[in-house]
């Protein structure tokens, strides 16, 4: 097991810009995260949250700026299995004929041979990961027969099996049951203690307060970034959400 230097940055994004055919989706965005930090990515639909994730994973190319993962390029982070992406439930085809086991095994593909034939260590990693998300009873269940929460846990298990040190989670709490929510929040604490770095997007302001050390408010660019207690203010949130008052967002009690 490699030792973690908690002072080095895991993620460094400097002035990154992403445009799709000339249409700017994200500009001058900065982010720096260290091991063991959990950061919330908050913004409206279309504010560039998914684009930010895509830039970090290398799924889209940045047109300007620089991204360093563990001090190296995104390309070598891909080769090293450094980043795991946990998609939104809506982002995947739930009718795809594939079982829980096969999805989680996909977390190991990047470190397998060209035929993707699992070694004993891959099988063990998949078993362990499935156990951690409490889906051992559903190994061969097709993902189409799972509940939203179970499906979310399947993709979390894939990220665990990958042994990534950075987890990007797109709306991890949307459409999940109470049990899954509890399990995910327990896993977050474990991940944090293992020194993993977590970036999660969410619509839910309560989850930000609960889990996130840091918060990144974006609206095509960074509105505010810093410690949740300092940055997550009604004023900043209002700016992020284009003038909608926080009363509306938080509900009457806050």
């Amino acid at each position: 097991m490699e030792t973690i230097n908690y002072q080095n940055f895991r993620i460094e994004a400097e002035n990154i810009c992403v445009d799709y055919n000339g249409k700017v989706a994200l500009y001058d965005a900065n982010l720096r995260l260290k091991p063991g930090q959990i950061c919330g990515l908050v913004g409206m639909n279309g504010a560039g949250k998914t684009t930010f994730f895509n830039a970090l994973t290398g799924f889209v190319n940045i047109s300007k700026g620089k991204i360093r993962i563990n001090g190296e390029s995104v390309r070598s982070a891909q080769k090293d299995q450094t980043i795991a992406y946990v998609p939104q439930n809506e982002g995947i085809d739930s009718q795809f004929p594939i079982s829980v086991w096969d999805v989680v095994m996909m977390g190991r593909y990047g470190s397998m041979n060209i035929f993707r034939s699992p070694r004993e260590s891959d099988v063990q990693a998949v078993k362990d990961a499935i156990e951690r998300v409490d889906l051992t009873d559903h190994l061969s269940t097709p993902i189409g027969n799972l509940s939203g929460g179970q499906r979310k846990r399947t993709f979390l298990a894939r990220a665990i099996a990958q042994r990534a040190s950075i987890l990007l989670l797109d709306e991890p709490f949307s459409g999940v049951d109470i049990r899954t929510e509890k399990l995910i929040s327990e896993l977050f604490i474990e991940f944090k203690n293992e020194g993993k770095t977590i970036l999660l997007s969410t619509h839910d302001m309560i989850h930000v307060r609960e889990f996130c050390d840091l918060v990144l408010l974006i609206n095509k660019t960074v509105v505010a970034y810093g410690e949740t207690s300092e940055v997550f203010t009604p004023e900043n949130i209002t700016t992020t959400f284009g003038g909608i008052s926080p009363d509306f967002l938080f509900g009457p009690e806050s």
Partner: peptide
């Protein structure tokens, strides 16, 4: 046959494929 599993992953979740360097 050679790329059977990679193609399955590509059809299912291209973003994950890219993220793990495929």
């Amino acid at each position: 046959s050679i790329f059977r599993k990679d193609l399955m992953l590509y059809c299912f979740d291209p973003r994950h494929a890219k993220t793990v360097g495929i």
